[in-house]
Design a protein around this nucleic acid. Structure first.
Lengths: 148, 148
DNA sequence: GATAAAAAGATTGTACACAATATAAATTTG
DNA sequence: CAAATTTATATTGTGTACAATCTTTTTATC
């Protein structure tokens, strides 16, 4: 039989895996802010732009699969990017249900302004390349297992 | 001079540290949901309860320091916990500005119901104890560096 | 080919995060 | 000790996340 002390140990904030991960993710998003403020986009909008810079044009569904977000998150976010003049939201002619999200010229040109963000941020983390690699691998494994 | 290809590599979603961390944190919060639904609390509310189970009573400021959250997040969250009957929000008699957050009997008794969540969730992650330890350490280091 | 089922987004509602500002109490300073 | 500053919390506004539901279009199935 477990003692009360043993039981409560498992519930200490410091003993959870969840809290450091949650806290580090929040801290990382905050760390991006000064850089992203210069581009006038948020962190989540930046993730969408990363996908678009890579793929040029994608559907909302594909974006959702890449980023693990649903239409309830993406639809308003994409409308904001549209109103900023960074993306277009055209209906597919092949499938009228689907929206094709593509970059405007302004959206494309933002890629140059974002070019140094990954390096700047990596410096800010103070992680060694090996540590970053390890952290990335562990997070990817965790996410993959949890999302089945 | 860098080629366009070299520049864009740094901006690939897969090459960012940020995305796996963000994505894993989201996945972990989703993974808690079925367990926390049984207690009728959210993930953030659970973090607050962890602090309270450990310390019995704290001010909003202390909660914010422990969790890295500000009053804009905590005030409405604590009001929700209060309306669920889990916490009390009393003004300090020593300092009328401060709110002392304490557990109700119901809030205390919830600790027993939460006792198995850490173990259940750890199983769900599929991480080895060594991997969990590593992930935790890297996240704590990252958060500490980023928040100065 | 009409009807049922599935798929793609949009909408609604709840709950964070967090910046910016406001308010009131406590503390410091002149 | 009055005025200025600081501190603790609350409020407001914006932007995610995500569950649940709805609409429209497409695809199956009879």
């Amino acid at each position: 039989m477990k003692s009360a002390t043993e039981n409560s140990n498992a519930l200490l904030l410091e003993n959870q895996i969840c809290f450091p991960l949650y806290s580090a993710a929040n801290a990382l998003i905050r760390a991006y802010k000064p850089f992203l403020d210069q581009l006038d986009i948020t962190y989540s909008q930046y993730l969408v732009m990363l996908v678009l810079w890579q793929h040029r044009a994608v559907t909302v569904k594909e974006l959702g699969q890449q980023l693990g977000l649903d239409s309830g998150t993406l639809t308003p976010l994409l409308k904001r990017l549209e109103s900023k003049g960074l993306v277009l939201r055209k209906r597919s002619t092949k499938d009228e249900r689907a929206r094709i999200i593509s970059l405007t010229r302004q959206g494309k040109s933002l890629e140059q302004q974002a070019a140094n963000i990954p390096r700047d941020l990596f410096c800010k983390t103070g992680l060694s390349p090996a540590q970053a690699k390890q952290l990335k691998a562990l997070c990817q494994q965790l996410q993959a297992v949890l999302d089945n």
